[in-house]
Design a protein around this nucleic acid. Structure first.
Lengths: 205, 205
DNA sequence: CCGTGAAGTGACTGATCAGTCAATCCACAC
DNA sequence: GTGTGGATTGACTGATCAGTCACTTCACGG
């Protein structure tokens, strides 16, 4: 795939992210996407097989970035706690930089039937596997409590971040100005650090 | 609304829950719902205004149960921690009893544009408000850390439960037999208890 | 038993749209 | 300057489906 093709695909993908975020996947028309991208309707089908293919491509491309970030955190972060912090921070920064993308990844992608094929599950779970390894190492190093399974720790962390961003994206009663993302991020990290901490393990079960 | 009408509506609603859970809201045909319910196609429109109305009715009816449960927990639970436990337990029991319902509430309802009207937001946020009050009381009683805002605590708790149930419902690689819901529930409660605990507050920030 | 209106029926329709395709344009090689 | 093949175009089509409606059946009161 040459440079020009990659660029054109990216233009379409970015337009699609904007349109999907605005109207939701099923209410979005492929014509809206081509208009937003400034290309002819038919061109969409030159670069992508179908509307589904566009959404899945968004997921695959951006999810790989996330997985790369987890990898990077594991290599560069001083300890397990800092590594988790880096991942959470990356997600919140991604939201600040492109709320539309997060909206699509959180709300549209998981709702598409075609999304659930073995290839995508593998990619999806790679993220969780990376996080689990951080937790596991943290337990071995005696930083994290041994009585919390890494898999549950991963889901709890993911859910906390996911639900919070969902509030930012959707809840009109949520005051974003008074409660900036950095504050939300810090509070999540605080709660999780305490929740997973080895020091809490002895507390009443 | 007489008894017979209520019953018939309930039959349709339950059929819709099954169909929506199976295929997702947008891929579900209203004809599938009438077949599943064993009523004529046109009858759907005698009892409900539209397909959207059916989904929103599912939300409203069941969400009221959840809100009632939060209220009940606040009245009957000994302390804030036990109260939260009761709410979490109710959600996991709802999943065991009717996974389809949870699938619809978690995945389909929040994805419907029409869902986001002031009336539904009000109802939706009533649940969060109830939880926030539990947290607030916990802080006043010195059980929960004062440096975590009740609103974030609520989102973290909701997200943890939500993400976990999502794994049960969707992730084929997740081994439900080896990891029963009761175990998941206990681990979540453990992590949250530690994460929100007053005792952790002094730990390095 | 008749009248009334609610409950129930399912064939039909009008609108919607994803995807196709035949035609044209364009860049580059020879 | 000509040929080749990919890129681009947008009008069109075929299928899909939510919702309608004219009709039938039923329950019940008088």
């Amino acid at each position: 795939m040459d440079e020009a093709t990659t660029q054109k695909k990216d233009i379409i993908l970015n337009a699609a992210i904007k349109v999907f975020a605005e109207k939701g996947y099923y209410s979005s028309r492929t014509l809206d996407i081509s208009n937003e991208a400034g290309v002819a309707y038919g061109s969409l089908y030159h670069y992508f097989r179908s509307k589904d293919d566009i959404l899945i491509s968004i997921f695959q491309e951006r999810w790989n970035l996330l997985i790369g970030k987890v990898q990077q955190a594991r290599e560069q972060g001083a300890g397990p706690e800092e590594q988790l912090g880096m991942v959470i921070d990356f997600i919140f920064r991604s939201y600040r930089q492109n709320p539309d993308l997060l909206k699509v990844l959180i709300m549209d992608v998981p709702r598409l039937d075609k999304f659930y094929n073995p290839e995508n599950w593998k990619l999806y779970n790679l993220f969780f596997r990376g996080l689990m390894e951080i937790f596991h190492e943290g337990q071995e190093k005696g930083v994290f409590a041994a009585d919390v399974s890494p898999i549950m720790a991963t889901y709890i962390m993911h859910g906390a971040v996911d639900a919070t961003i969902r509030q930012y994206v959707y809840n009109p009663e949520f005051n974003k100005e008074e409660f900036p993302v950095e504050e939300a991020r810090d509070q999540i990290m605080k709660v999780l650090r305490r929740g997973f901490s080895k020091k809490g393990e002895d507390e009443k079960s």
